[in-house]
């Protein structure tokens, strides 16, 4: 602006100061707006009562070999399957390099006969079928997601279909041989 009119030194000095004050004012305003924006945005994040979800304890003694149950944890289902010898063998015998999300069966279980996974398809969040008797278990003896056709194996690993990841293994500890604490 100053160059466009006459090169007046006072004027240039003034415009420098004025620019500084402008930037300062805009800068302070921006910081103020941002510090107000954050609590607004953050108010939509999970609240304390939602975060304060207790972990759950599950009695495993009533689950027969070959069957599975569904329990609710953090508003989501968790699958607990009492695997048969055949299912354990199948899960161990897979060539890891052929998997979409390579993981060994040993890394996904603490006790070979108990498979505990979050029952939410990693594609778009549907509940895969295969827990209750008579539901389709997919091509790999695990779970089948009816929404978009993802097949999970007997270790809960994605084998076929659009899902990118294996079923998530939650943190859990065995309190006794027949009781598990999830979360």
């Amino acid at each position: 602006m100053a160059e466009a009119t006459q090169p007046d030194s006072d004027h240039e000095e003034d415009s420098g100061r004025r620019d500084f004050l402008n930037y300062l004012a805009i800068g302070v305003g921006a910081v103020g707006a941002a510090s107000f924006a954050w609590p607004v945005i953050n108010s939509m994040n999970p609240s304390k009562d939602v975060l304060a979800l207790a972990s759950i304890e599950v009695d495993l003694s009533k689950i027969d070999v070959g069957s599975a149950i569904k329990v609710v944890w953090r508003g989501k289902p968790v699958f607990i399957r009492h695997r048969t010898e055949k299912e354990i063998e199948e899960a161990k015998d897979v060539d890891i390099s052929t998997l979409i999300d390579p993981e060994t069966d040993a890394a996904r279980v603490k006790e070979a006969q108990w498979l505990i996974v979050v029952g939410v398809c990693t594609h778009l969040g549907c509940i895969p079928l295969g827990t209750a008797d008579g539901e389709p278990r997919g091509d790999f003896d695990g779970w089948f997601c009816p929404c978009h056709g993802s097949h999970y194996d007997s270790s809960g690993r994605i084998r076929k279909g659009p899902a990118p990841k294996n079923l998530v293994v939650p943190t859990y500890t065995f309190l006794t041989d027949s009781t598990v604490k999830i979360g």
Binding site: I41, M44, N45, P46, S47, V50, L53, R74, G75, K76
Partner: peptide
């Protein structure tokens, strides 16, 4: 996604917003 839900799944906070 957790921010959209206001939790760990679609639930009451989600319905409200």
């Amino acid at each position: 996604v957790q921010w959209l839900w206001g939790g760990f799944s679609v639930d009451n906070p989600t319905l409200n917003r």
